[in-house]
């Protein structure tokens, strides 16, 4: 699938990538850190916009479309999130890189 590059939203861009589903989550917000103010700052830095704010003002994380880029681990630090690479042979598989 391909689309004229100038008219492409984020979801469509992520839809171009090859992702292989894994069995377990590889990024978790550590227990007790759900209200950490840093989480709101990570919303804008994730290239896949996987951090979103819900109606209660809490930050949610969805892993679908994760590029394993590591930005949130660097931005938040290991006190706030537990960040592991997904299992071998799963996750994003770049065809060009």
């Amino acid at each position: 699938m391909s689309v004229e590059s100038t008219a492409l939203g984020l979801a469509a861009k992520l839809g171009l990538n090859v992702f292989k589903e894994g069995e377990s989550f590889h990024i978790r917000i550590n227990p007790g850190q759900e209200g950490n103010a840093l989480l709101k700052k990570v919303i804008s830095v994730c290239p896949s916009a996987l951090y979103t704010i819900n109606d209660n003002g809490e930050v949610n994380l969805c892993e679908d479309g994760c590029l394993e880029c590591g930005t949130c681990r660097i931005a938040l630090g290991i006190e706030v999130i537990d960040w592991q690479y997904p299992e071998g042979g799963t996750g994003v598989q770049y065809r060009f890189g």
Partner: peptide, 17 residues
């Protein structure tokens, strides 16, 4: 930038630290 990529088709989106 637009003048360079006009008519081009995005085929992959990637990111890394």
């Amino acid at each position: 930038v637009a003048s360079i990529i006009k008519g081009g088709q995005t085929v992959e989106y990637s990111a890394h630290v």
